[in-house]
């Protein structure tokens, strides 16, 4: 039987084995160290993704709200003086413009202050119902009542109403 020993070949094989093992161990240690970091990053990003998805859902609701206004036939709310005349005839009304501000898609928010002297309380609800049913609607923002000393069921009413409009 011939001598099978190939010393240089064996040395090369062992050198490769040792290098591969050392590299394997080094990579294992590296993996063990890196894995918690990666898992933490991935978990954080997954959390952020969920938050962003919630945000998108909320923004979709915003878009839907704006879209509902864009679909209206009229872009101007009805005149308040007319509404007051129709719902509480004979009551003196002082209507003043308050602040205006920007809204999405070129719309503007307009606030009006309405002061009614000796208004019957049972008609105030009717007025507000008509204002809110209009398209675009008027929305009640503030309301102050001061009961009349002379006429029970009547009050001095101050309303602040808000509406969206697009010119």
């Amino acid at each position: 039987m011939k001598n099978p020993w190939n010393i240089s070949g064996m040395r090369l094989l062992w050198a490769m084995a040792i290098v591969a093992l050392a590299l394997g161990f080094w990579l294992t240690v590296r993996s063990a160290r890196k894995t918690p970091d990666y898992i933490r990053w991935i978990e954080r990003k997954t959390e952020h993704l969920e938050q962003l998805q919630h945000m998108r859902t909320a923004l979709r609701a915003n878009h839907e709200a704006v879209a509902a206004f864009e679909a209206l036939d009229h872009r101007q709310p009805p005149e308040l003086s007319g509404l007051i005349r129709e719902t509480i005839p004979g009551v003196a009304a002082d209507i003043r413009q308050r602040e205006t501000g920007p809204a999405a898609e070129g719309w503007t928010v307009r606030r009006m202050e309405v002061e009614l002297e000796e208004a019957p309380l049972n008609r105030i609800g009717h007025l507000l119902y008509r204002a809110e049913s209009a398209r675009p609607p008027w929305r009640l923002v503030e309301c102050d009542l001061l009961a009349s000393d002379r006429n029970p069921g009547y009050a001095r009413v101050t309303l602040i109403l808000e509406a969206l409009e697009k010119r």
């Binding site: 704006v66 507000l128 809110e132 609607p137 929305r139 309301c143 509406a163």
Partner: peptide, 25 residues
């Protein structure tokens, strides 16, 4: 971006919500 868009869209969401009128009533 969401805060900005919320601020601009808030009047639209509130406009269709008659909470104060209902409460006054």
């Amino acid at each position: 971006a969401k805060t900005e868009q919320d601020a601009l869209s808030a009047p639209f969401r509130k406009a269709l919500d008659p909470r104060l009128t209902t409460l006054l009533h």
